[in-house]
């Protein structure tokens, strides 16, 4: 890996983040709020991509990690007075713990079995939330109290009802995620992951502990997804069981596939495009999820590598 290549990669990602920072000065109000949501969802998809794109493991239950963060953070903020920052950390820890447990069990399978096992665990997580409805209020969910919207932290007053603050918090989280992933996938772990994706038996034979590496990838993936969930619940003040439903697992897959699985920026691009495609479609038809279906089929038929994956293949081989 040459130094100039590294510089190019860093420059590209800094440029993307700078663009996201600058665009807030010209975005119309609605798109300003929408982009805040999209960035949080993009973090979720980037977490998903860690497992699917780089390790080749297709999970159909990632919503459970998102929900672990959402509920870990949201329930803490709702029921205790530990404060929002601590609630956010607790949400992330819940996701890390859950992904470790799920990983230890589910990674004993591969391929189709892995998809179905994760889907079922996801379904169990969803049912668990609705079962403990006395605390979670199930489908109806919980609204964050005022104390979780306006609070003091390290001497600063934080007002989460402020759209500007929310946008920049989401952007900061996105930036952190982006660089963590960049460092991981370009480091030794990333190379082992890709080796596993391409040929697991050979990687095993070369002396790598593939199970441990995959477990590591799943925990990183689940933790990032949980961070997105925790941020989503706290920033937008609502947690509900529908976030744990299978539809949200599929969304992460869709965002990643569209943008390009195994590219660092792909999930971000996919999230933005998909959000607007659905938003625009919903102005014309009640059946806006049709867009989701058509996109999935077309992608898998004609662009299995997604947008950035195709670009990397054709024009920009250095794209991480």
């Amino acid at each position: 890996m040459t130094a100039s290549r590294t510089m190019r990669v860093i420059a590209l990602h800094v440029a993307v983040l700078a663009a996201l920072f600058l665009v807030q000065f010209v975005l119309p109000d609605y798109h300003y709020l929408a982009m805040t949501r999209v960035m949080v969802l993009a973090i979720y998809a980037m977490g998903y991509n860690m497992l699917f794109g780089y390790t080749g493991l297709l999970s159909l239950g990632h919503a459970m990690f998102f929900a672990a963060g959402l509920y870990g953070a949201g329930m803490t903020a709702y029921y205790t007075d530990l404060g929002v920052p601590l609630a956010f950390l607790i949400g992330i820890c819940c996701g890390a713990l859950l992904s470790l447990i799920i990983g230890l069990v589910a990674l004993r399978t591969t391929g189709v079995a892995f998809m179905i096992v994760t889907m079922m665990f996801g379904q169990v997580a969803y049912l668990t939330i609705t079962y403990f409805t006395d605390y979670t209020r199930g489908e109806e969910g919980l609204t964050m109290p005022a104390s979780a919207r306006n609070f003091d932290f390290l001497g600063l007053h934080v007002d989460l009802t402020n759209a500007v603050l929310r946008y920049n918090l989401a952007l900061a989280l996105l930036a952190i995620t982006l660089f963590v992933i960049l460092i991981l996938v370009r480091g030794p772990m990333g190379r082992v992951l890709i080796a596993i994706r391409e040929n697991e038996p050979r990687t095993l034979m070369l002396g790598f502990d593939t199970f441990r590496t995959k477990l590591g990838a799943l925990v990183v993936s689940g933790t990032i997804s949980a961070m997105a969930g925790a941020a989503y619940g706290l920033l937008f003040a609502y947690i509900g069981a529908s976030f744990a439903s299978i539809q949200y697992s599929i969304e992460a897959l869709l965002f990643t596939l569209l943008g390009g699985a195994g590219t660092v920026l792909g999930p971000l691009l996919g999230s933005i495009l998909m959000f607007y495609m659905i938003d625009i479609a919903s102005e014309y038809t009640a059946a806006y999820l049709l867009v989701t279906g058509v996109a999935l089929v077309l992608l898998v038929l004609f662009f299995p590598k997604g947008i950035l994956g195709t670009i990397r293949e054709r024009w920009l081989p250095w794209l991480p």
Binding site: D29, L33, N150, L156, H157, V158, D159, T161, N162, A163, V164, L165, N168
Partner: peptide
Amino acid sequence: GMGAATGA
């Protein structure tokens, strides 16, 4: 002036 409580 971020940090000041200013709603959308």
